[in-house]
Design a protein around this nucleic acid. Structure first.
Length: 266
DNA sequence: CGTTATAGCTACTTGTGTAA
DNA sequence: TTACACAAGTAGCTATAACG
Protein backbone atom coordinates (compact mmCIF):
# COMPACT_ATOMS: atom_id res chain seq x y z
CA UNK A 1 0.00 0.00 0.00
CA UNK A 2 2.64 2.52 1.04
CA UNK A 3 4.94 1.39 -1.80
CA UNK A 4 2.20 2.37 -4.23
CA UNK A 5 1.63 5.78 -2.63
CA UNK A 6 3.06 8.89 -4.24
CA UNK A 7 1.70 11.31 -1.68
CA UNK A 8 5.00 10.82 0.14
CA UNK A 9 6.38 13.24 -2.46
CA UNK A 10 6.32 17.01 -1.91
CA UNK A 11 3.68 18.88 -3.90
CA UNK A 12 1.95 15.66 -4.79
CA UNK A 13 -1.60 15.21 -3.58
CA UNK A 14 -4.33 12.71 -4.32
CA UNK A 15 -4.97 14.24 -7.73
CA UNK A 16 -1.43 14.08 -9.05
CA UNK A 17 -1.05 10.62 -7.57
CA UNK A 18 -4.10 9.43 -9.50
CA UNK A 19 -2.57 10.77 -12.70
CA UNK A 20 0.63 8.84 -12.07
CA UNK A 21 -1.36 5.65 -11.49
CA UNK A 22 -3.27 6.30 -14.73
CA UNK A 23 0.06 6.45 -16.59
CA UNK A 24 0.78 2.91 -15.46
CA UNK A 25 3.13 3.95 -12.69
CA UNK A 26 1.73 1.71 -9.99
CA UNK A 27 4.54 1.70 -7.48
CA UNK A 28 7.70 3.46 -6.36
CA UNK A 29 9.74 0.96 -8.39
CA UNK A 30 7.70 1.61 -11.53
CA UNK A 31 8.27 5.33 -11.08
CA UNK A 32 11.99 5.04 -10.53
CA UNK A 33 12.29 2.68 -13.49
CA UNK A 34 10.64 5.15 -15.85
CA UNK A 35 12.99 7.38 -17.83
CA UNK A 36 10.49 10.18 -18.36
CA UNK A 37 7.23 10.92 -16.57
CA UNK A 38 4.50 12.93 -18.26
CA UNK A 39 3.95 16.24 -16.50
CA UNK A 40 7.25 16.21 -14.64
CA UNK A 41 10.41 18.09 -15.63
CA UNK A 42 13.51 15.95 -15.52
CA UNK A 43 14.81 17.95 -12.59
CA UNK A 44 11.66 17.20 -10.65
CA UNK A 45 11.71 13.57 -11.71
CA UNK A 46 15.26 13.27 -10.36
CA UNK A 47 14.29 14.89 -7.09
CA UNK A 48 11.33 12.53 -6.75
CA UNK A 49 13.50 9.49 -7.54
CA UNK A 50 15.84 10.54 -4.80
CA UNK A 51 13.03 11.04 -2.34
CA UNK A 52 11.50 7.64 -3.16
CA UNK A 53 14.84 5.94 -2.67
CA UNK A 54 15.05 7.63 0.71
CA UNK A 55 11.56 6.36 1.54
CA UNK A 56 12.52 2.82 0.48
CA UNK A 57 15.62 2.90 2.67
CA UNK A 58 13.65 4.08 5.68
CA UNK A 59 11.00 1.44 5.09
CA UNK A 60 13.63 -1.28 4.90
CA UNK A 61 15.11 -0.07 8.16
CA UNK A 62 11.66 -0.01 9.72
CA UNK A 63 11.95 3.67 10.49
CA UNK A 64 8.29 4.65 10.68
CA UNK A 65 9.07 8.16 11.95
CA UNK A 66 10.21 9.12 8.47
CA UNK A 67 6.57 8.95 7.40
CA UNK A 68 4.98 10.67 10.39
CA UNK A 69 4.38 13.94 8.53
CA UNK A 70 2.82 12.56 5.39
CA UNK A 71 -0.94 12.83 4.74
CA UNK A 72 -3.18 9.73 4.85
CA UNK A 73 -1.22 8.02 7.61
CA UNK A 74 -3.63 5.07 7.40
CA UNK A 75 -1.64 3.91 4.36
CA UNK A 76 1.09 2.83 6.78
CA UNK A 77 -1.20 0.31 8.48
CA UNK A 78 -0.22 -2.81 6.54
CA UNK A 79 3.46 -2.04 6.88
CA UNK A 80 3.47 -1.39 10.63
CA UNK A 81 0.33 -3.05 12.02
CA UNK A 82 2.34 -5.75 13.78
CA UNK A 83 4.22 -3.06 15.66
CA UNK A 84 1.23 -0.83 16.32
CA UNK A 85 -0.22 0.24 19.65
CA UNK A 86 -3.87 1.05 20.22
CA UNK A 87 -4.34 3.85 22.72
CA UNK A 88 -7.22 5.32 24.71
CA UNK A 89 -7.29 7.51 27.80
CA UNK A 90 -9.86 8.32 30.45
CA UNK A 91 -9.94 11.62 32.29
CA UNK A 92 -11.58 13.31 35.25
CA UNK A 93 -13.54 15.67 33.09
CA UNK A 94 -12.53 17.12 29.79
CA UNK A 95 -9.22 18.65 30.71
CA UNK A 96 -9.07 18.03 34.44
CA UNK A 97 -6.57 15.21 34.51
CA UNK A 98 -5.78 11.74 33.23
CA UNK A 99 -7.09 8.85 35.32
CA UNK A 100 -6.39 5.87 33.07
CA UNK A 101 -4.29 5.19 29.98
CA UNK A 102 -4.80 1.93 28.14
CA UNK A 103 -2.35 0.53 25.59
CA UNK A 104 -2.88 -2.58 23.53
CA UNK A 105 -0.85 -4.38 20.88
CA UNK A 106 -4.08 -5.84 19.54
CA UNK A 107 -4.03 -8.83 21.85
CA UNK A 108 -2.81 -7.90 25.32
CA UNK A 109 -3.48 -4.67 27.14
CA UNK A 110 -1.35 -2.67 29.50
CA UNK A 111 -3.20 -0.25 31.76
CA UNK A 112 -1.81 2.73 33.62
CA UNK A 113 -3.92 3.95 36.54
CA UNK A 114 -3.46 7.18 38.45
CA UNK A 115 -2.27 6.42 41.97
CA UNK A 116 -0.78 3.08 40.92
CA UNK A 117 1.45 3.10 37.87
CA UNK A 118 0.51 6.16 35.83
CA UNK A 119 3.97 7.58 35.44
CA UNK A 120 5.55 9.69 32.72
CA UNK A 121 8.71 7.67 32.21
CA UNK A 122 6.86 4.34 32.37
CA UNK A 123 4.46 5.56 29.71
CA UNK A 124 7.19 6.86 27.43
CA UNK A 125 9.15 3.65 27.85
CA UNK A 126 6.12 1.52 26.93
CA UNK A 127 5.13 3.69 23.97
CA UNK A 128 8.66 3.64 22.58
CA UNK A 129 8.24 -0.07 21.84
CA UNK A 130 5.85 0.69 19.01
CA UNK A 131 6.15 2.16 15.52
CA UNK A 132 2.56 3.25 14.94
CA UNK A 133 -0.20 4.66 17.15
CA UNK A 134 -3.86 3.98 16.46
CA UNK A 135 -6.71 5.84 18.17
CA UNK A 136 -10.24 7.03 17.69
CA UNK A 137 -10.25 10.84 17.78
CA UNK A 138 -6.82 10.74 19.38
CA UNK A 139 -5.53 13.66 17.34
CA UNK A 140 -8.08 15.98 18.91
CA UNK A 141 -8.22 14.48 22.38
CA UNK A 142 -5.96 11.71 23.67
CA UNK A 143 -2.63 12.87 22.23
CA UNK A 144 -3.04 16.61 23.04
CA UNK A 145 -4.10 15.69 26.60
CA UNK A 146 -1.09 13.41 27.04
CA UNK A 147 1.12 16.17 25.68
CA UNK A 148 -0.42 18.67 28.07
CA UNK A 149 0.01 16.59 31.20
CA UNK A 150 3.24 14.78 30.40
CA UNK A 151 4.83 17.23 27.99
CA UNK A 152 5.33 14.36 25.61
CA UNK A 153 4.25 13.80 22.04
CA UNK A 154 5.28 10.64 20.19
CA UNK A 155 7.10 11.12 16.89
CA UNK A 156 5.81 7.95 15.23
CA UNK A 157 2.92 7.99 12.72
CA UNK A 158 -0.60 8.08 14.08
CA UNK A 159 -3.78 6.75 12.48
CA UNK A 160 -6.92 8.42 13.78
CA UNK A 161 -9.70 6.01 12.83
CA UNK A 162 -12.31 8.70 13.35
CA UNK A 163 -11.40 10.34 10.06
CA UNK A 164 -11.02 7.07 8.21
CA UNK A 165 -14.56 6.24 9.34
CA UNK A 166 -15.82 9.64 8.31
CA UNK A 167 -14.42 9.31 4.79
CA UNK A 168 -16.14 5.94 4.41
CA UNK A 169 -19.44 7.36 5.64
CA UNK A 170 -19.39 6.04 9.20
CA UNK A 171 -20.16 8.71 11.79
CA UNK A 172 -21.76 9.07 15.19
CA UNK A 173 -18.87 8.13 17.47
CA UNK A 174 -17.04 4.89 18.25
CA UNK A 175 -19.89 3.14 20.08
CA UNK A 176 -22.34 3.75 17.24
CA UNK A 177 -19.83 2.59 14.63
CA UNK A 178 -19.04 -0.59 16.59
CA UNK A 179 -22.73 -1.48 16.41
CA UNK A 180 -22.71 -1.08 12.63
CA UNK A 181 -19.85 -3.56 12.46
CA UNK A 182 -21.49 -5.92 14.99
CA UNK A 183 -18.56 -5.51 17.35
CA UNK A 184 -19.76 -6.45 20.83
CA UNK A 185 -18.79 -5.16 24.29
CA UNK A 186 -18.67 -7.29 27.41
CA UNK A 187 -21.94 -7.00 29.39
CA UNK A 188 -20.37 -5.34 32.46
CA UNK A 189 -19.55 -2.21 30.51
CA UNK A 190 -22.07 -2.35 27.69
CA UNK A 191 -23.96 0.91 27.38
CA UNK A 192 -21.37 2.91 29.30
CA UNK A 193 -20.20 6.24 27.91
CA UNK A 194 -17.18 8.45 28.44
CA UNK A 195 -19.23 10.47 30.88
CA UNK A 196 -19.85 7.33 32.94
CA UNK A 197 -16.10 6.80 33.02
CA UNK A 198 -15.75 10.10 34.88
CA UNK A 199 -18.41 8.96 37.33
CA UNK A 200 -16.75 5.57 37.85
CA UNK A 201 -13.48 7.29 38.77
CA UNK A 202 -15.24 9.62 41.24
CA UNK A 203 -17.00 6.65 42.85
CA UNK A 204 -13.74 4.74 43.13
CA UNK A 205 -12.02 7.72 44.77
CA UNK A 206 -14.81 8.42 47.25
CA UNK A 207 -15.78 4.86 48.15
CA UNK A 208 -12.52 2.99 47.64
CA UNK A 209 -14.52 0.08 46.26
CA UNK A 210 -12.53 -1.87 43.74
CA UNK A 211 -15.62 -2.69 41.70
CA UNK A 212 -15.75 0.85 40.31
CA UNK A 213 -12.13 0.91 39.24
CA UNK A 214 -12.43 -2.52 37.63
CA UNK A 215 -15.35 -1.42 35.53
CA UNK A 216 -13.48 1.70 34.45
CA UNK A 217 -10.48 -0.35 33.35
CA UNK A 218 -12.71 -2.83 31.51
CA UNK A 219 -14.43 0.03 29.76
CA UNK A 220 -11.07 1.42 28.66
CA UNK A 221 -9.96 -2.05 27.50
CA UNK A 222 -13.05 -2.46 25.33
CA UNK A 223 -12.26 0.82 23.59
CA UNK A 224 -8.73 -0.18 22.62
CA UNK A 225 -9.42 -3.85 21.84
CA UNK A 226 -12.27 -2.97 19.49
CA UNK A 227 -10.07 -0.66 17.44
CA UNK A 228 -8.12 -3.49 15.84
CA UNK A 229 -11.02 -5.38 14.21
CA UNK A 230 -12.32 -2.00 13.12
CA UNK A 231 -8.99 -1.05 11.53
CA UNK A 232 -8.77 -4.44 9.80
CA UNK A 233 -12.08 -3.67 8.06
CA UNK A 234 -11.58 0.05 7.41
CA UNK A 235 -8.08 0.26 5.99
CA UNK A 236 -8.55 -2.19 3.08
CA UNK A 237 -11.84 -0.46 2.23
CA UNK A 238 -10.13 2.90 2.33
CA UNK A 239 -7.42 1.69 -0.06
CA UNK A 240 -10.06 0.32 -2.45
CA UNK A 241 -11.70 3.72 -2.37
CA UNK A 242 -8.66 5.85 -3.17
CA UNK A 243 -6.91 3.39 -5.49
CA UNK A 244 -9.76 1.81 -7.40
CA UNK A 245 -12.55 4.32 -6.76
CA UNK A 246 -14.68 1.68 -5.15
CA UNK A 247 -16.65 2.82 -2.17
CA UNK A 248 -17.99 -0.27 -0.56
CA UNK A 249 -17.25 -2.15 2.61
CA UNK A 250 -18.22 -5.69 3.51
CA UNK A 251 -20.30 -5.55 6.65
CA UNK A 252 -21.64 -8.49 8.65
CA UNK A 253 -24.91 -9.46 6.99
CA UNK A 254 -26.54 -11.54 9.75
CA UNK A 255 -27.44 -8.78 12.21
CA UNK A 256 -27.95 -6.46 9.30
CA UNK A 257 -30.85 -8.30 7.72
CA UNK A 258 -32.29 -9.37 11.07
CA UNK A 259 -32.78 -5.88 12.43
CA UNK A 260 -33.59 -4.26 9.13
CA UNK A 261 -31.30 -1.41 10.05
CA UNK A 262 -28.51 -1.71 7.57
CA UNK A 263 -25.63 0.72 7.95
CA UNK A 264 -25.32 3.37 5.34
CA UNK A 265 -23.29 2.42 2.31
CA UNK A 266 -22.26 5.52 0.48
C1' DC B 1 -16.82 22.64 28.59
C1' DG B 2 -11.10 22.69 24.73
C1' DT B 3 -8.66 20.87 21.01
C1' DT B 4 -7.98 19.48 16.39
C1' DA B 5 -8.71 17.30 11.55
C1' DT B 6 -11.51 17.95 7.82
C1' DA B 7 -14.53 19.91 4.20
C1' DG B 8 -15.68 23.75 1.51
C1' DC B 9 -14.53 28.11 0.15
C1' DT B 10 -11.33 31.95 -1.71
C1' DA B 11 -7.00 33.91 -2.80
C1' DC B 12 -2.07 33.18 -3.58
C1' DT B 13 1.94 30.60 -5.23
C1' DT B 14 4.45 27.23 -7.79
C1' DG B 15 5.55 24.08 -11.69
C1' DT B 16 4.88 22.91 -16.62
C1' DG B 17 4.58 23.41 -21.45
C1' DT B 18 4.42 26.31 -25.52
C1' DA B 19 6.21 29.75 -28.23
C1' DA B 20 8.74 33.79 -29.38
C1' DT C 1 16.10 32.77 -22.07
C1' DT C 2 11.78 35.02 -21.17
C1' DA C 3 6.74 35.62 -21.27
C1' DC C 4 2.41 33.75 -20.68
C1' DA C 5 -1.53 30.60 -19.58
C1' DC C 6 -3.10 26.73 -17.23
C1' DA C 7 -3.24 23.25 -13.65
C1' DA C 8 -2.54 22.08 -9.05
C1' DG C 9 -0.70 22.68 -4.31
C1' DT C 10 -0.70 25.86 -0.19
C1' DA C 11 -2.54 29.10 3.10
C1' DG C 12 -6.17 31.24 5.47
C1' DC C 13 -10.78 31.46 6.64
C1' DT C 14 -15.47 29.19 8.86
C1' DA C 15 -18.31 25.42 10.44
C1' DT C 16 -18.71 20.77 12.21
C1' DA C 17 -17.79 16.60 14.81
C1' DA C 18 -15.85 13.61 18.40
C1' DC C 19 -13.35 12.67 22.68
C1' DG C 20 -14.37 12.03 28.88
Amino acid sequence: MIRESFIVLPHVGRRTEAKLWAQGLHSWDHFMGAVKVKGLSSARKDAFDWRLQEAKDNLRKGNSSFFSKMPDQWRLYNEFKDEAVYLDIETNGYYSGITVIGLSDGFDTKTFVRGFNLDRSLLIKELSKYKLIITFNGSSFDLPVINRFFDFSPNVPHIDLRFVCQKLGFTGGLKAIEKQFSIKRRPEVNGLSGEDAVYLWEMWKSSGEREYLDRLVWYNEEDILNLKPLADKLIPAMWQKVRYLKNDIALPTASCTAKGSCPVRT
